[in-house]
Design a binder for these strands. Structure first.
Lengths: 247, 247
DNA sequence: CGGACAGTTGACCTATTTCAAATGTGGTGG
DNA sequence: CCACCACATTTGAAATAGGTCAACTGTCCG
């Protein structure tokens, strides 16, 4: 059912897995066969809502999406930004319903993997099941780093750290290098990631620009001093688990 | 090898699992057989450090422990508080090494489950593997709620929310009710959970006391108005996934 | 061409931090 | 049993990072 274009996009998912473990040809075939329906999600659309009963998990093929929670007063907090090749809600297989919403930050395309296929993987492909378990543990590690950022880093450090994280994660699928990357978010989106106000994000971006570290203009991050940015953020990529291991 | 006392303490772990899914007698036997060595951890000891290679996961039998990360400057952020019956690092099975440290907040006792036993569970007991996968997804859900707290809640809301969370989690093993619970942490520990300074935690606790909501004195939380606390924190226990489901 | 947002800036405000000092408190050695 | 020490708690005063409010500008799209 998947056309060449979508097959190529699942390659991004495989590239992220293969950065962390060896995936056999047989396992690759199982993965590809487990995906089903492709859906298009327009920018700004919340496609999965907290509390909904889910029977499939969703892989992001193309675009930027995020997980977010909000408070009764309307304050929004993004808990993770997702890029092409990420599972948006692999954890919905375990949880059956989510504690957060999932929204498209840009026009996006996703492909669904039924929970029945994931159950089959746990029954018949235990190593692949462990690889997918690892992916959800990686999301948790990213959450912990964000807890540290929100709890103990200043505004400028938070933004610098987020940019460093996205630089590495997008770099895994050749969508970023040390000169920069496309990041089609608004300053308000950034403020929802960093627990700041849009106004303060704007001032902090100016500060980063004036320090000669980076710019964020017309949906693109331009990095002028990667080493300086890493130093400011005290960024250490350990929490992204980039080493290949037998999981 | 486990004496009656430790068997009884593993019951707390089973109680937490059984609040979320059905665990058969056979699975219970597998769980009990998978545990090995018991260790004592003195208060204040960091027993697992970020980056260490791990070959076992650790269940907390008794006491209070936490996961924490810190910055080069020494600022500490606790990312999760653990109580008796919690796995401290089930995710180390997937990750092989951690991105955070684990420390005893009080004198504690733990029991180890070798990763080889967990591998065997994924090979031979897929439902039990899914239950343990669920447990790590639950930790991630707790992390997300903390991201929301740190990003968007005020100091008093954060502390109230943490107390509500601990009330529910300790209640699962009969260590808390709506009148309160023992919480052997210092105000500094609380500040490391909430991303505040110890001084401000102290003032905020006074505020909570003066509002007639709760007190925190001599290692005990006394709740005077559970409904008021829940309302102030805008606490919703959905993220703790307390419904029993076939995982 | 107009309307809806996204970005920018200034002035002012406040929640929380910082710094400093005083007051418990629990455990230990003599 | 007391003296003492290391911490934990408490409080006040001053400082500040980031928020709020408000206005203006840019930009994209129909």
């Amino acid at each position: 059912m998947l056309v060449r274009n979508e097959r190529a996009m699942i390659d991004r998912h495989l590239a992220k897995l293969r950065a962390r473990d060896t995936i056999s040809a047989e396992e690759e075939a199982v993965i590809r066969q487990s995906f089903g329906e492709v859906r298009v999600v327009p920018a700004g659309t919340t496609c999965i809502r907290a509390g909904e009963r889910l029977t499939f998990s969703t892989l992001l093929l193309d675009g930027f999406m995020c997980r977010y929670k909000d408070l009764p007063g309307g304050e929004r907090q993004i808990t993770e930004v997702h890029t092409a090749g990420d599972f948006l809600d692999l954890h919905s297989f375990s949880l059956k319903q989510l504690d957060h919403n999932i929204m498209a930050l840009t026009a996006s395309r996703v492909v669904l993997m039924p929970h029945t296929a994931l159950t089959a993987i746990t029954e018949h492909h235990p190593h692949l099941a462990r690889v997918y378990w690892f992916l959800t543990a990686l999301d948790a590690a990213i959450h912990r780093e964000w807890v540290l950022s929100l709890g103990r880093r200043t505004a400028i450090e938070r933004i610098a750290h987020l940019v460093c994280e996205l630089r590495v994660r997008l770099g895994l699928v050749d969508q970023a290098d040390d000169s920069g990357f496309d990041l089609p978010l608004t300053q308000t989106d950034l403020s929802d990631c960093t627990g700041l106000t849009p106004v303060h994000v704007n001032r902090t971006l100016r500060d980063l620009r004036e320090r000669g570290l980076m710019e964020f203009r017309s949906k693109r991050v331009t990095i002028h001093d990667m080493a300086g940015l890493i130093a400011l953020a005290e960024f250490d990529d350990n929490y992204l688990y980039l080493r290949r291991e037998a999981r």
